[in-house]
């Protein structure tokens, strides 16, 4: 019953989303958690092709507030209104060299549902020697398959976020393509990020 309603909701949001993003609550009868799903958030999508075939994109981040579960306008990029931002496979946090906030992140290996507490240590901020969420295949949240050019979230990677105002969230990256293909084909539109997250509004580390 829950699955059915989720599916209905999924299609509703899919049809309602016009190059923007929507979110919905998902829950699984087998597991004891409720996560918000952000569906197909545009992460600097491709707008055209250069004469030599290289893709062209605007090169801008899409800013997102986990606290409000909403996209934040680019005009507010120098404020603490956002927590994380996406551009292609790159994810930045509102802290360090990326923003004025107290944001930080770390990537854990494990199951999303099993991460019950945000760790006390291990937090990184974006710096000149790299981002808190590392870029590159296999380093952070995704693997890149050179023969098919497919970007696939690594199963069992949980991205933990300290928000701009110092609260905690956990993220499970779901897909990098429109339509959430299990295996993308060459026609799949990339740079549309779907992720599930749990945000703890009370400021504690607990996700229960």
């Amino acid at each position: 019953m829950l699955k059915l309603s989720f599916r209905a909701l999924f299609f509703l949001t899919l049809s309602a989303s016009i190059a923007a993003c929507d979110s919905s609550s998902i829950s699984d009868p087998d597991e004891d958690f409720v996560a918000e799903r952000v569906l197909e958030l545009p992460a600097d999508p491709i707008t055209g092709f250069a004469p030599d075939g290289r893709p062209i994109a605007a090169g801008v981040f899409t800013y997102f507030s986990l606290a409000n579960n909403a996209i934040v306008a680019n005009a507010d990029s120098a404020t603490t209104a956002w927590d994380i931002a996406f551009k292609g496979t790159t994810i930045i946090v509102n802290g360090g060299i990326s923003g004025p906030g107290n944001g930080a992140a770390q990537v854990l290996s494990g199951l999303f549902s099993e991460v019950m507490m945000a760790p006390e240590t291990g937090w990184n901020q974006d710096g000149s020697d790299g981002n808190a969420i590392p870029t590159g295949s296999g380093n952070g949240w995704y693997n890149y398959e050179p023969t098919t050019n497919a970007i696939t979230p690594i199963p069992g990677r949980v991205v933990l976020i300290r928000t701009a105002d110092g609260r905690y969230a956990k993220i499970s990256m779901v897909n990098y393509y429109r339509g959430l293909p299990e295996v993308p084909d060459p026609q799949s539109e990339s740079r549309y990020i779907t992720f599930d997250f749990v945000f703890q509004p009370d400021g504690s580390r607990s996700f229960e």
């Binding site: 995704y142 693997n143 398959e145 098919t148 497919a150 696939t152 690594i154 069992g156 299990e182 295996v183």
Partner: peptide
């Protein structure tokens, strides 16, 4: 043949 689900090892039927 090759990995499809991002864990780089052979485990899924596709």
């Amino acid at each position: 043949y090759s990995d499809r689900n991002g864990n780089l090892i052979l485990d899924a039927s596709n």
